[in-house]
Simulated assay, not measured.
Amino acid sequence: MGKIFRERTPVGEARKLFLENISPIRESEEVPLEACAGRVLAEVVIAERNVPHYRRSAMDGYAVRASDTLGATPSNPVLLQLSENVGEGTCIWVHTGTAVPDEADAVLMVEDTVVVGDMVEARAQVYPNRNIGMVGEDVKIGDLIFEKGHFLRPCDASVLASLGFSDVRVLRKPVVTIIPTGDELVSRENTLEVPPPGMVLETNGLMAALYVEKWGGIPRCTKIVPDDPEKIADAVKASLDGDMVLICGGTSVGKRDHAPQVVESLGKLLVHGVGSVPGKPAALGVIGEVPIVCLPGYPVAGLVALYFFARPGLRKCGAIPEIPDTVLKMCLAAKLSSRIGYVSFVRVVFEGDRVRPLMGAGAGVLSSVAKADGYVLVPENVEGYEAGEEVSVFLIE
Results as ranks from 00 to 15, higher is better:
residue 332 L to C: 02
residue 288 G to Q: 11
residue 290 V to R: 03
residue 318 G to K: 08
residue 361 A to T: 09
residue 337 S to R: 14
residue 363 A to R: 07
residue 288 G to R: 12
residue 309 F to W: 10
residue 311 R to P: 00
residue 291 P to M: 10
residue 348 V to M: 10
residue 330 M to Y: 10
residue 355 V to N: 09
residue 341 G to E: 07
residue 353 D to G: 06
residue 365 V to H: 11
residue 305 A to H: 05
residue 299 P to G: 06
residue 363 A to L: 04
residue 360 G to T: 13
residue 285 G to M: 04
residue 297 G to C: 01
residue 280 K to W: 00
residue 355 V to M: 01
residue 354 R to H: 13
residue 313 G to A: 08
residue 315 R to P: 02
residue 320 I to F: 01
residue 292 I to K: 01
residue 285 G to Y: 07
residue 331 C to H: 13
residue 345 F to Q: 10
residue 331 C to P: 05
residue 358 L to R: 06
residue 365 V to L: 14
residue 353 D to V: 12
residue 346 V to S: 06
residue 322 E to V: 13
residue 317 C to D: 00
residue 304 V to W: 02
residue 324 P to G: 08
residue 356 R to T: 03
residue 332 L to R: 06
residue 303 L to Q: 02
residue 342 Y to S: 02
residue 314 L to V: 07
residue 331 C to V: 03
residue 300 V to Q: 07
residue 281 P to M: 01
residue 353 D to S: 14
residue 296 P to D: 02
residue 304 V to I: 11
residue 321 P to V: 12
residue 290 V to F: 11
residue 311 R to G: 01
residue 337 S to Q: 12
residue 364 G to A: 12
residue 366 L to T: 05
residue 312 P to A: 09
residue 367 S to T: 14
residue 368 S to D: 10
residue 296 P to H: 03
residue 284 L to K: 04
residue 343 V to S: 02
residue 284 L to T: 08
residue 334 A to E: 15
residue 320 I to M: 02
residue 285 G to Q: 08
residue 335 K to P: 05
residue 332 L to Y: 08
residue 314 L to P: 06
residue 345 F to V: 04
residue 363 A to F: 03
residue 349 V to W: 09
residue 312 P to Q: 10
residue 358 L to Q: 09
residue 287 I to F: 04
residue 305 A to Y: 03
residue 286 V to H: 07
